[in-house]
Design a protein around this nucleic acid. Sequence first.
RNA 1: CGGGACGUAGCGCAGCUCGGUAGCGCACUUGCUUCGGGAGCAAGGGGUCGCUGGUUCAAAUCCAGUCGUCCCGACCA
Length: 577
Amino acid sequence: MRYSKFFIPSLKEDPKEAVLKSHKLLLRAGFVRQLSGGIYTYLPLGFKSLKKLEDIIRQEMNLAGAVELSMPFVQPLDIWRQSGRDEDYGKELLRFKDRQDRDFCLAPTYEEVITDLVKRNIKSYKELPLTLYQIHLKFRDEMRPRFGLMRAKEFIMKDAYSFDADDAGLDKSYKAMRKAYENIFKRLGFSFKFIKAEAGEIGGSYSEELMVFSEYGEDTIVLCDNCGYSASIDDANSVSDYHGPLESCRQPKMTKLFTPDKKSVEDVSAYLKVDKTCFAKTIIYETEIGFVAGIVRGDREINEHKLKKAAGVKNLFLAKEADVERVTGAPCGFAGPFGLNDVRLIVIDEEINNSEYWITGANEKDAHMANVKPERDFMPDVVANIRSVQTGDKCVRCSGSLSVKNAIELGHIFKLGDKYSSILDAKFLDEKGEFKFFVMGCYGIGVGRTLQTLIEVFSDESGINLPVSVSPFTVAVVSLNTGDEGIVGLSEKIYSELKSFGMDILYDDRKLSAGVKLKDIDLIGIPFKIVIGNRTIKDKKYELSIKNGNIKEVYGNLESLYKRVIELSKVEGFFEP
RNA sequence: CGGGACGUAGCGCAGCUCGGUAGCGCACUUGCUUCGGGAGCAAGGGGUCGCUGGUUCAAAUCCAGUCGUCCCGACCA
């Protein structure tokens, strides 16, 4: 492909709407453009990369025995009314009417359609198991689309659905998909892990999320360095073996401490010269049952998800400052667990209950209280694990050391059981001639999100650095001086010869200065680059640059250059020096 | 949906406090020179200042509303 004939609107400067590195690069390298919030055009370059990524997914799905199809993006709302998810999905389901005034929606997912399809066409256990998949659009009217393709309203997803005669069959289908996912993400070069998850909107009995580690991931997960235990920060537990504040900060009896203007644990700890672990901090939340106080150690954070569960509430958010003042009788920053007005529940973390001698707010301006003991000085209603795991905590399984990492969820696999088949009355005849509901599983990969995550994880200061298998082009030929016949002639020759070997090649024939062209190639991140300039002609040597590792190789003749390029193009991930 | 910020040329921004001729860099067009890491000189083109209304002799600038984009929170691939 000639650069001059391709459409690559690259940007020199960071667009202001992007925050994330990968989002900036997607825009700068001319991979995508936003049409409206959460709605994107894939430009030729991004589209080419996307297709390569899809092919990898397709290969592994096919290998696992899944069969590809394509379902309608526009769906009659009736089918959603039947499954009851019309209401469940709420505003995320974008609805509209056709000219006959019938209700339709844009597909946020495809369980209804696939279940209906299989119900109408599969009658016997002899036709099972069956796994169908598609790579296709979904639309969810997200309340807040953000970070480019990471959370878009319209997005591309690979979704697969398995149909089995019984649970044992489902286990097999599930395992096959799980293995396919492992293959896909290994081929892409990701460092990843499956994490058990709560099923959410899709529902079902068991599900795992495929998480890829990345500093900027929106999800937080906990890993054990020793036994491999892993869980979402909302589910993860750590050993509670804390035996209370240090000797040095224990007071023999309840003592009021003067702490002028010191509100945060940080400030009070510095002011009193007492370790943060000696504090019990009291946070007031507003919920549908009234105010709830959550108490954890001073150096800890409350996990609101856990607190919700422990308190048995659905909605929970930090109380407004005015409410905190009313409830505690003191300005924000001096809350303690005793003498609270109008608090329905006091929930304390296990660690707090394990011990005494706590320093807490005194519910009085500019004062804290030492030697506060649960059950003597205040009555906890619930004792539970409501703290977030921190790096260094002990693993509940093996007492190894836990670490907390950010990750991006790229896949989610579910055992659905008969959730949809029973609602939609999808049955087949088993060997005994009895009707049974299909036992289903469903398996998703966010394809657009995966592309962006590849860029997030694999990029350097100069630009994108994708694995060879998903880079939009494998090799670039850059003609530095388009005014020189010798250079142009040689560039054309190399371009057409490499093309004849079936190489996916971008030939930069633009009449621009050398710097601009080289920067663009680096930004797009083409793994291998052949630069033709005066030097090439003068020295009769051919230079091949490898982006990963910033390596330059020089060849004395075209045959050996071609041989090397062909060899390199077969690398699946990155060329490793 | 709650909280915050921003909308001025294709892109990135200044101008707005204190109302009076719309500006800078990059990009673009033409010519000449240059040609291994975002070239130089010369000449040029391009903006209803997001939109609507109000105040005013006069609005990019002040006021109100509205739309859009982004960030933080509750949800998710």
